[in-house]
Amino acid sequence: MTFANDNMAYLGASPVEQAFLRHRPELLRFLVSRLRCFATAEDAVQEVYVRASGARPPIHDPRALLFQTAANLIRNQARSDGRGRAAFSTYADLIAPPFEAITPERQVLDAEALDRAQTAIQNLPPQCQVVFRLHRFDGLKQREVATHLGISTTAVEKHMRRAMAALVAAVET
């Protein structure tokens, strides 16, 4: 792998590898907060990388794949450790945090991020908006979107990459 620029993009790296390098600190914090042990979380981060890097294409959201893999790893570990209900409740918090965890500040930040995401979608070119909405909101597969709109699947992929990049940029600001 060759370092390409300051955005941590590596030439020859798969999207999963790039997402892992970009989100590793966040993934480690996520795992430390759930596993309550830094050393165990470090091992889990490496296991997540190994498992996620073996995923078959197409991978639409490499970051989501990493975090879903981490959540599955925690769930599997909880089962094998026999920690029963306590471990399951920790895993359940991953899916739906307890009501107390939703603070007014978190609500404001989430509302602002949602507004930025909606604005980003509205600022996309019309064809890109349609492709994004059909695929993400209506649940059509990329092949079905291509057939429905009379465009190639490559064009659908291009529009989805553009839309996802705009959303990521909007939400991360």
Rank of each mutant, 00 (worst) to 15 (best):
148 H>M: 06
110 D>M: 03
172 E>I: 00
119 T>G: 06
40 T>V: 11
36 R>W: 12
65 L>S: 00
37 C>H: 10
98 P>H: 08
147 T>K: 10
68 Q>F: 05
169 A>V: 04
90 T>W: 09
35 L>Q: 00
162 R>P: 01
98 P>F: 05
23 H>Y: 14
77 Q>I: 02
50 V>L: 15
105 E>Q: 13
160 M>C: 14
13 A>I: 03
5 N>R: 07
79 R>N: 02
40 T>F: 05
76 N>F: 01
37 C>Y: 11
105 E>D: 14
21 L>N: 06
28 L>E: 11
46 Q>M: 15
43 D>L: 00
120 A>G: 01
65 L>I: 12
22 R>E: 04
106 R>D: 06
138 D>G: 01
158 K>E: 08
88 F>C: 06
30 F>P: 00
157 E>C: 04
96 A>W: 11
61 D>S: 09
48 V>H: 00
115 D>I: 10
140 L>A: 02
172 E>P: 02
2 T>S: 13
51 R>A: 04
163 A>Y: 01
70 A>Q: 02
62 P>S: 12
129 Q>W: 03
23 H>L: 10
138 D>W: 01
119 T>Q: 12
169 A>G: 08
77 Q>R: 09
56 R>Y: 06
30 F>I: 06
153 T>I: 04
104 P>E: 06
19 A>I: 14
78 A>Q: 14
89 S>T: 12
66 L>Q: 15
136 R>M: 12
22 R>V: 11
102 I>W: 07
153 T>S: 11
149 L>Y: 07
68 Q>G: 13
49 Y>D: 05
128 C>D: 12
69 T>I: 10
34 R>K: 13
42 E>H: 10
12 G>I: 04
18 Q>G: 03
134 L>C: 00
160 M>I: 15
117 A>M: 15
1 M>A: 10
121 I>K: 02
129 Q>T: 02
127 Q>N: 14
47 E>S: 00
135 H>F: 10
13 A>T: 07
39 A>S: 09
1 M>K: 09
107 Q>T: 13
110 D>R: 08
39 A>D: 14
42 E>L: 11
107 Q>H: 10
111 A>S: 15
15 P>L: 13
101 A>H: 15
160 M>Y: 10
173 T>P: 02
146 A>P: 01
169 A>I: 04
107 Q>F: 13
147 T>G: 04
101 A>P: 08
37 C>S: 15
94 L>C: 11
168 V>H: 13
33 S>E: 04
24 R>E: 08
56 R>W: 05
79 R>G: 01
114 L>C: 06
137 F>W: 12
135 H>E: 04
60 H>Q: 15
168 V>E: 05
83 R>H: 11
158 K>M: 09
123 N>S: 07
130 V>L: 13
116 R>T: 10
90 T>Y: 12
97 P>C: 11
40 T>K: 10
173 T>K: 13
17 E>F: 00
26 E>H: 03
151 I>G: 03
21 L>R: 06
101 A>N: 15
29 R>A: 08
167 L>V: 03
146 A>S: 09
96 A>K: 13
34 R>W: 05
3 F>T: 11
39 A>F: 07
98 P>T: 06
95 I>A: 14
102 I>E: 05
170 A>T: 01
23 H>M: 12
82 G>C: 04
75 R>H: 14
19 A>N: 12
38 F>A: 14
169 A>D: 09
55 A>T: 04
153 T>A: 12
